[in-house]
Simulated assay, not measured.
Amino acid sequence: MKKAVLENLRSFSMGPITMRPFAGDKLMIVRAELPAGSVAPRHSHPHEQMTIVFSGRVEMSLGDETTIAGPGEVVHIPGGVEHGAVALEDAVIADVFHPVREDFLEKLA
């Protein structure tokens, strides 16, 4: 069994966004701290993703759709679909990935 406090995990930065990954064998959760106005540029990856908003509001784009997600809301992002986000205010989210984002773990090494 592995156990961690998400806000105390080691982190890396993606621009102004702080990323705190925690991985099992086939599944990963990443606490992300987004200052207001920060942008996760549109990108795609083969990993299936769920994004859970804990605090703040985030404008999320997926393909040609856009939505605003707030506390307690979850957004599903299929693998291979271009997506991005803009923090409309300071926000804390969790991204869940399957399979594990090895590229994120390498950034902690």
Rank of each mutant, 00 (worst) to 15 (best):
V86T: 15
T66M: 14
R31C: 10
P41A: 12
E82K: 09
M50D: 07
L27S: 09
R57P: 10
S38P: 01
E73I: 03
P71T: 12
T51M: 15
A94D: 05
G84D: 06
A94Q: 11
A23G: 09
H76V: 05
G84A: 02
E7Y: 07
V86P: 03
L108I: 14
P21F: 08
D64V: 13
A32W: 01
K107L: 15
E7W: 04
G24P: 01
M50R: 01
K107W: 09
I68P: 04
P78C: 11
A23S: 15
A36E: 13
A91V: 05
S44P: 01
F12M: 05
A40T: 04
G70Y: 05
D64A: 08
V75C: 03
T66G: 06
T18N: 06
G79M: 09
S44G: 13
V53T: 11
V39F: 08
G24E: 02
L34C: 13
A4E: 13
H83E: 07
S38C: 10
E106S: 13
T67G: 06
H76K: 03
M14A: 09
V81K: 05
M14W: 14
F54W: 07
A32L: 11
P21Q: 06
P21S: 05
L62G: 12
G37I: 15
P16L: 14
P46M: 10
A40E: 04
M50K: 05
A91Y: 07
D90Q: 06
G80F: 05
M1R: 07
S44V: 05
E102C: 00
P35E: 07
